[in-house]
């Protein structure tokens, strides 16, 4: 910064106060942090690639998992994630504009652009929370076999997914809820799936137009890249391996397929979401500092530039997460 006074004549390059590489200490340290953080994210994504290549023929297809848009019913693959990507890029733009306004010492402009950046970040974090909620809740339900593989159900005519709700047969059982008044040492009952394995099996037997879809991806021919749908006879045979009803997702199992898929979803988007959240918090702090006139008194808006770097980095990481988790 020109405005900060240094007594350059008495200093050597590494003695402090000087600016090696023409970048100030704070900016250089921010870059150090960003490079190391980039390596952390790369580690996550590379590990994701490892697991995916290991199970390349059975990995879930992201298009079929992320099909929801808030307030709309239906099948909209990728639309919402694309919207989130756009929101983040947009908030990156308002951030650069804030930095640019800071260079020109326009306080009001910086305030407004910072405000818009914060709003964009909040929309993104909110969208991600919604996405997590939808992912955890699930929508069709599936069966897990003894070997830990996921079996999903499709309609025979359209090959579209069928929810357990649509075909499982209610079987009256003697199961009663354990209540506090009956227990000496009472624990709340944990989560219980809506249907038992027997109810799903009976439903499958009763509905001729329901087939089982396995995790295996067809490797060649007309339907290359799609999941394998079993014939009616094979479906009934496969149902004998059923061990559990799975609805939605948690860290142990999920209805979408490979167990690792949900784990990586939670870890990668969660770690990124945490970055966005902390970015929003830091942006808010700087926002108030700008309003209070801290940087005006300091004579330069370099602090805005530094949080700007962090904010763009979050956007940069999302570009990679978007590609490797949702597109490829």
């Amino acid at each position: 910064m020109d405005s900060s006074v240094t007594t350059a004549s008495e200093e050597n390059v590494w003695g402090g106060g000087n600016k090696p590489l023409n970048a100030s200490y704070g900016k250089l340290m921010m870059w150090f942090f960003l490079v190391s953080d980039a390596l952390t994210f790369s580690g996550f994504l590379a590990a994701y690639g490892f697991s995916r290549f290991k199970f390349i023929e059975t990995w879930p297809i992201a298009d079929e998992v992320f099909t929801h848009v808030p307030f709309f019913h239906g099948n909209f693959p990728m639309y919402y994630v694309a919207f989130m990507t756009f929101v983040l890029i947009m908030s990156s733009v308002t951030m650069v504009l804030a930095v640019d306004a800071g260079h020109n010492n326009k306080k009001t402009a910086v305030i407004w652009y910072m405000f818009l950046t914060i709003i964009g970040g909040a929309i993104f974090v909110g969208s991600q929370a919604w996405e997590w909620a939808t992912f955890i809740k699930g929508d069709y339900g599936a069966i897990e076999t003894k070997g830990g593989r996921i079996l999903q159900f499709v309609s025979a005519e359209t090959e579209e997914r069928v929810a357990l709700d649509d075909f499982a047969k209610e079987i009256a059982s003697e199961r009663t809820d354990h209540e506090r008044k009956n227990g000496v040492w009472f624990f709340n009952e944990g989560y219980v799936p809506s249907y038992t394995v027997n109810e799903v099996a009976a439903g499958l037997k009763a509905n001729d137009d329901v087939l089982i879809r396995t995790e295996a991806i067809i490797q060649e021919g007309e339907k290359e890249g799609e999941k394998t749908v079993l014939s009616r006879a094979a479906s009934l045979e496969k149902m004998k391996d059923a061990a559990l009803v799975v609805e939605g997702a948690n860290l142990v199992r999920n209805e979408y397929g490979s167990r690792l898929f949900a784990d990586f979803f939670f870890f990668i988007t969660g770690f990124h979401g945490f970055h966005v959240f902390s970015g929003v918090v830091i942006n808010i702090i700087i926002f108030f500092n700008v309003i209070l006139g801290t940087y005006e008194r300091r004579g330069h808006y370099e602090m805005v530039e530094k949080v700007g770097l962090y904010w763009h980095f979050v956007d940069l990481v999302w570009v990679f997460v978007f590609t490797f988790f949702y597109l490829v």
């Binding site: 590489l21 023409n22 970048a23 250089l28 870059w31 990156s92 733009v93 951030m95 650069v96 930095v99 700007g308 770097l309 763009h312 980095f313 956007d315 940069l316 570009v319 990679f320 978007f322 590609t323 597109l327 490829v328």
Partner: peptide, 26 residues
């Protein structure tokens, strides 16, 4: 997809994070 991602990353780093204006050694 991967090439387009790298293109996007380049422009975010170069123009938004203004690496374009930094010294080439940095």
């Amino acid at each position: 997809f991967i090439i387009l991602t790298l293109v996007k990353a380049y422009y975010i780093a170069w123009d938004f994070m203004h690496l374009r204006d930094e010294k080439s050694s940095l």
